[in-house]
Structure formats: structure tokens, C-alpha cells
Design a protein around this nucleic acid. Structure first.
Lengths: 187, 187
DNA sequence: GAAATCCTTTGATATAGATCAAAAAATTAA
DNA sequence: TTAATTTTTTGATCTATATCAAAGGATTTC
């Protein structure tokens, strides 16, 4: 619980009242490897803060799984489009490893945003950081080789690289597994 | 000025006090076609809300201009990375057409975030929308043909398509001008 | 600990789109 | 309006990476 509150404090002040409200609304969950926290065509009502483990979101294209997001210890993950728009989407949220997390519902999150300016600040700054990260990923895509894309990926995901199957990494950076296998051999 | 405040009201409440603060901090500017509001290797201190006209951001890669963002009437544009991190970046912010805009400095923006919960809410929701749009763009990239990328672009930028030079569109969607020219011929 | 399943590598071939070069069209400037 | 500049199109060629197919490793499961 402590690291959870600490993680908010890195971006904003956390009053005792907010801390109490946060802790009372959050629910501990456990998922086994391969299990799902959300599936396509349904509405994702929760966002998860990972205590231990590793998860990803992906969608299907032409029968292949395209990984969209990886998240590990200390990070948030949800099926973003569904969670934010309150609509079904085409994403799956799956545990890559057995994981423990805190779940927070969209309703509780909205309550906290409405009632705590500090929480709203946390939300704004978090979204800004995610936006910048995504635009850096996009930039690493445009007019670059498979090797460059992989190099950028390694820089960003260095700490969890060895825990990710090659096929998931390949689809995340937009190349085939075969190509990634050959790129790796060269390095 | 009215549309400017209206645009905030679409995402949040705007108290009279916030409205007054906003209007007193904002500065009207005009840029001619081709002129710059920010250049690489400098810090971008302002964000712009466009009254009329059309602007873009781009960066250089191998001597080519890669367009990153287009924005027109009623939209915000800035050199995002520099503005948010308060650091120099590699982007240019340029007018595609003669444009009129309101400029808001990062310091004023931060003042408004700190002092108005409603403004913080506006920031959070705006960033969420930008994030989702960017992830949709990225999705339209992964394992798709030049034709599919262009089709997605046309859907999103339908209203300003005819005002954008082909070369800028091509670099935005990550293909060469020659390829885009051939794709267009087919449609 | 053997069988089954899943993940990664290797090889051969095909292809979408890049690159290079130059002509044609459209804008802008004088 | 003509000249100059910029943008777009067209053609020929090349290449990185996809695709298809199959073998080799590694994990999981019972």
C-alpha cells in the first residue's frame, strides 16, 4: 500500500483525506499467467496498478495478436479506449506473468477527480507523460528500419526486456517475429 | 473570444473568475504563411489556440521534413515535448496558412492549473483525448498498407484535407510523396 | 520425465514501397 | 503575363521486410 501512495506523491501532493479515500476504494486482485482482466467487445470498468508481475494489452488483426501496451511493477494498465469512453473496444488485457494489482473502478476514479484537485492534477500529469511517451514511440517508427525500432524499444523497456516473449515485442514494434529474430542475431 | 471560452465549456465548467483570468492572460497573434512560432533547439514557452488558419509541427530526419501534428480552427498546437518538459526539442511549429491565434504561456497555464480545479480538469480531459487519438493513429500504422494509412488519415482529417500539401500528408502518415501520389491515383 | 504445446530460428521467395531521375502542373513572384 | 519556384506525377529500378514452410528449442502439463 505504501508504494501505491508514494507513486502518487511523485506527481502531486496527497492529503490525508485523499489517501484515505484512495485506500478505501482500491481492491487487491491476483491474476495467473495468461488470464484476462478484460476482453474484446466488452466494457472495461477498471484500471489496474501493478504491485508485482507483468501485463499487456493487445488486439487482433488478421488472426495475429498485436501487442499495444506492456506494463510492469509500479505502472498502470487498463484497456484505455474502453475505460475512457465507457464503450466496448477490440482490446484484450492479459497477464504475461502471474501478477498482483490494485483495481480502481472508473466510478471511483471519477469521484476522486471531482472531489480532489490534487487527484485531478495527478490525472493530468499522468496523461501528459503517456502522451509524450506515445509520441516518442511514433517518432521511432516513422521512416526507420526494423533495427532502429528494436533499438528504441530496448532503450525504453530495458528493465523488462528479458521477461517478454519475442513475438509480443515484434508485434509491439510493428515487425514480424521472423524479422525480429534476424535483427537480434545481428546484435 | 467567445468561441475560445465556449471551447473550454465543452469539457468543463468555467467560473466567471476563471473566464476573467483566462482572457486577461491570453495574447492575440498573427502569423503569415510559412512563418515559425517555434524552431528546433529552443524552448517553446507558449501554446496556441487557433482562431483561423492552419499550422503544423515537424522535425527533420535525413534532410526531410516529417510532419507530426496538423491543427486548424478551434484546436490547440504547440511544440509538445519542449513545452511540457521545458527543454529544447527538435521540432518546428510553422503556419501552413496565414493564421490568427491566442497564445498562452506555460507559466500562465500552470498558474491556472494550480488555482482552478476546473482548469486542471480541462487539462486532464484534453490530454486523454489527445492520447486516444494518438493511439488510434498508431493502430492505423501497424501492419497496414500505404492505402490503409491514407484512408485512416482521410477519415480523421476530412475537413482540412484539401488545404494540406501532399508532401506533408505523406510524411505525416509515414510514406513517401511518390507513394502517396500513386495511392491517390488509384482512388 | 515423456508428450504435447508453444516459441524461436532458419531458409527460400515474393512484393510493397523506397529511391533516383526527370517531366509536367500548379503556385508564387516580379 | 512571364519567369521562377514549388509541388505533384510518372517511370525504372532496387531493397528491406513480409510471407510461406519447416525444423529446432524450450516450457508446460499430466
Amino acid at each position: 500500500m505504501k508504494e501505491f501512495i508514494e507513486h502518487f506523491k511523485r506527481l502531486t501532493q496527497v492529503s490525508e483525506k485523499l489517501e484515505k479515500e484512495l485506500l478505501s476504494r482500491v481492491v487487491s486482485i491476483v491474476v495467473d499467467k495468461g488470464e484476462f482482466l478484460h476482453k474484446a467487445d466488452s466494457i472495461c470498468k477498471k484500471t489496474y496498478w501493478i504491485k508485482t508481475g507483468l501485463l499487456r494489452t493487445y488486439y487482433l488483426k488478421g488472426g495475429n495478436e498485436i501487442t499495444d501496451v506492456f506494463a510492469s511493477e509500479g505502472e498502470w494498465i487498463t484497456s484505455t479506449q474502453s475505460f475512457m469512453k465507457n464503450e466496448p473496444d477490440q482490446y484484450y488485457l492479459q497477464a504475461i506473468e502471474k501478477s498482483k494489482a490494485y483495481a480502481l473502478s472508473i466510478d471511483d476514479l471519477m469521484f476522486l477527480f471531482e472531489n480532489f484537485h490534487e487527484m485531478e492534477k495527478f490525472g493530468r500529469i499522468s496523461m501528459s507523460i503517456y502522451y509524450i511517451q506515445l509520441s516518442e514511440k511514433l517518432e521511432s517508427y516513422q521512416f526507420t528500419t526494423a533495427k532502429d525500432k528494436y533499438a528504441h524499444f530496448c532503450k525504453v523497456y530495458n528493465s523488462i526486456l528479458h521477461r517478454l516473449p519475442l513475438g509480443m515485442v515484434a508485434s509491439y514494434i510493428g515487425i514480424t517475429q521472423e524479422t525480429l529474430s534476424r535483427v537480434r542475431k545481428e546484435l
